[in-house]
């Protein structure tokens, strides 16, 4: 008899847990690229609820996708006039923002997706602190006000490169994003921005040429497609990796046929 009660209790628990996991507003749901927002990178309680920022993985310099959820009186809600302002306060006293590609409400995930490029990391490759990233969120939820500053840690990755344009001496930031590199043809995004004061503006009029190379073997690969501009400084192309290992994508930038700079992106998988 006691086994029957025990089994019944487990059954009820399972049913209950099943009800909970059927909630469509969990951030563990996957985005349209099949990736899960499973890591909480920032969370703060408020008088009326909670704000949390999720990511697919540890945040690293370069392109990232975030999910911001706002729970108001137990419900995931939208925020009127939402402002999302990341800021890096550098050790030397200077500060700057970071470019945001897009921000939109995801009804399925009941949160805001933010796609952005972290132009630098909190720590250097050697582990020295270079500054502090924060995210300032503002907006209104009914009668309540959202005004929070959340600290964010971004780790080093060699996915963002900078160069000075040979034409106008502007500082150009380029970030490479390959979602899941594998052998064969890979789609990739290249984000290109110009630094203006402490902000970043999209650069939309470049011709870009890429040449992948495997330095340890001294060979490249054929059938690559140079990236072309899609929107707001985002360029899309294809790169062909003929084997796993350490690759370098040599990237050259041209404006009106004039070579303005080049950077190298290492890719290892």
């Amino acid at each position: 008899m006691k086994y029957t009660i025990f089994l019944l209790a487990i059954f009820v628990l399972l049913i209950q847990s099943g009800c909970e996991t059927s909630n469509p507003t969990t951030p563990d749901d996957q985005n349209d690229q099949g990736q899960s927002f499973s890591l909480v990178v920032a969370r703060q309680q408020t008088a009326w609820g909670e704000v949390a920022i999720y990511a697919h993985d540890t945040l690293r310099a370069g392109y990232a996708e975030l999910l911001i959820t706002v729970k108001h009186n137990g419900q995931y809600v939208q925020v009127s006039n939402l402002q999302f302002e990341p800021e890096m306060a550098m050790q030397g006293g200077m500060s700057h923002s970071t470019p945001i590609d897009t921000l939109f409400w995801d009804a399925q995930l009941q949160g805001y997706q933010v796609h952005l490029v972290w132009v630098m990391a909190t720590y250097s490759p050697g582990g020295d602190k270079m500054g502090d990233w924060t995210v300032h969120l503002t907006g209104t939820i009914g009668q309540d006000t959202l005004d929070l500053t959340l600290p964010i840690e971004v780790y080093y990755a060699e996915r963002v490169k900078a160069f000075i344009s040979a034409l106008d001496s502007a500082k150009i930031i380029a970030a490479l994003h390959i979602s899941n590199p594998e052998v064969g043809l890979n789609d990739f995004d290249l984000f290109v921005y110009r630094k203006v004061m402490h902000r970043f503006e999209p650069v939309t009029d470049l011709s870009i040429e890429i040449e992948p190379e495997m330095p340890s073997m001294g060979h490249g690969s054929p059938n690559n497609q140079n990236p072309v501009h899609i929107r707001k400084g985002r360029y899309q192309g294809k790169v062909n990796f003929t084997m796993t290992g350490d690759w370098v994508i040599h990237t050259a930038f041209y404006r009106d046929g004039v070579h303005i700079g080049k950077v190298d992106f290492p890719v290892t998988f």
Binding site: V183, S216, M243, T244, F269
Partner: peptide
């Protein structure tokens, strides 16, 4: 398949 081992590099695989 083939796996290559360059010094100080990630092993490289290809079919």
């Amino acid at each position: 398949e083939m796996v290559m081992y360059a010094p100080d590099a990630t092993p490289m695989w290809m079919p």
